[in-house]
């Protein structure tokens, strides 16, 4: 499943994932955004992996925020835009 979201003036976020037994699996978040340090991407996908597929957008965003430390800089995208791309992949 594939979903995309771009906040106006920001960068495009894509989510590719599967759903098995009601949970998100094989989540891949990609796009033309900037992220420092780059390794933080696995924290973002890790926060989504195995999440219940019926979680609301705000709850997905909350999970992502909880997984990225204060030293991580998301440039051109946000926990909210990733959560929206995931919801779009699911609908």
């Amino acid at each position: 499943m594939h979903g995309e979201y771009k906040t106006p003036g920001e960068k495009l976020v894509m989510a590719d994932l599967d759903v098995r037994e009601g949970r998100l699996k094989d989540v891949e978040v990609s796009g033309d955004f900037f992220l420092e340090p780059p390794e933080a991407l696995s924290g973002i996908t890790g926060a989504l992996e195995n999440a219940p597929a019926d979680l609301a957008e705000e709850d997905l965003a909350e999970r992502i925020r909880g997984a990225v430390g204060s030293d991580v800089e998301m440039i051109g995208f946000s926990a909210e835009s990733v959560a929206r791309a995931v919801r779009r992949a699911l609908t």
Binding site: M14, S30, G31, F34, P38
Partner: peptide
């Protein structure tokens, strides 16, 4: 490609 882009996309 940018660091965070997927090849197939």
């Amino acid at each position: 490609l940018g660091r965070f882009q997927s090849v197939r996309n």
